[in-house]
Amino acid sequence: MTLDRLKQHFPWVTLVVLILIVGAMDPNFLRPQNLVELAGDIAPLFIMALGMTLAIYIGGIDLSAQSVANMTTVLATITLPLFGVFSALVVIAVGFLFGAVSGLVTTRLKVPSFIATLAVGGIALSVGQFASGQRALYMDAGQRDRAFGWMLGSTAGIPHELVLSLVLLAFAWFIQNRMKAGRILKAVGAGELAAVASGLRVDRYKILAFALSGMFAAIAGLLFSVKLSGGSPTLAEGFLLPAIVAVLVGGTPLTGGVGGVLNTLIGAMIVAVVRASMLYLDIPATSQQIFFGIVLIVAIALTIDRSKMRIVK
């Protein structure tokens, strides 16, 4: 077996090893109930990472995800009294639109995706601050429970957040593996020039990937604001780093083309277990960012496909 063949098994092996290590420190950790709750807790982050996967899958990146989620927490809180459960549709549409704008800017105007999404993120930040009046807003508990109570709580020990995550995962997986769009996204990630040369309308599908990324970021923001029963233009701060880490340690390289949404499930679980283990080891939460930053560097270095980059800028 060559290293490359082994590489694709790294993520889940890492996950199992991590779980066993933490389990050895505290056997309670291994209780199925605990693991299921752990998976439920990471739902908003995982959903954002799902969208991020699509952007990275085509060799781009979406740095606006956190800002879009921030904006969504505000918009969801504002639209809840007006539209009830349908406010979900509104914020999801807005997220999709912001992602589509990123996609348009990067494909039509040829602005690299990290700058395009950074800029669109700035716009989302402004919208969030404008809509909230730069304050933290709160949802009315009754209204929230009537409209979105189903997102929280658990049935037969399975947290609803986990179910929601898995439904969204199935949706993303279906697009990626069972639809023409998914095959084209893979082609774009594997070699964009070849994809263009074979007559694919590459731009359209790239825009779609960014739009879906924005949509998932909005769903993540919605779930988070329902969870915390409110919204503010900085509520989802701190999501971007772990979301990118989840995608990359899951095994979707920065250069795209391989990996995918199932990998991100594993990546998100790795992030969750690492966070939990830091609690057990009494490592202060402030070190998390240092740790994940370094993990990100290592993960990129290990997974990146250098044959696609003659010059690394």
Binding site: L296, I297, K313
Partner: peptide, 14 residues
């Protein structure tokens, strides 16, 4: 050999 935008973004988080 990591693209500078990701290397520096990660270092920024650190």
């Amino acid at each position: 050999r990591i693209p500078s935008f990701m290397a520096s973004l990660s270092m920024g988080f650190v």
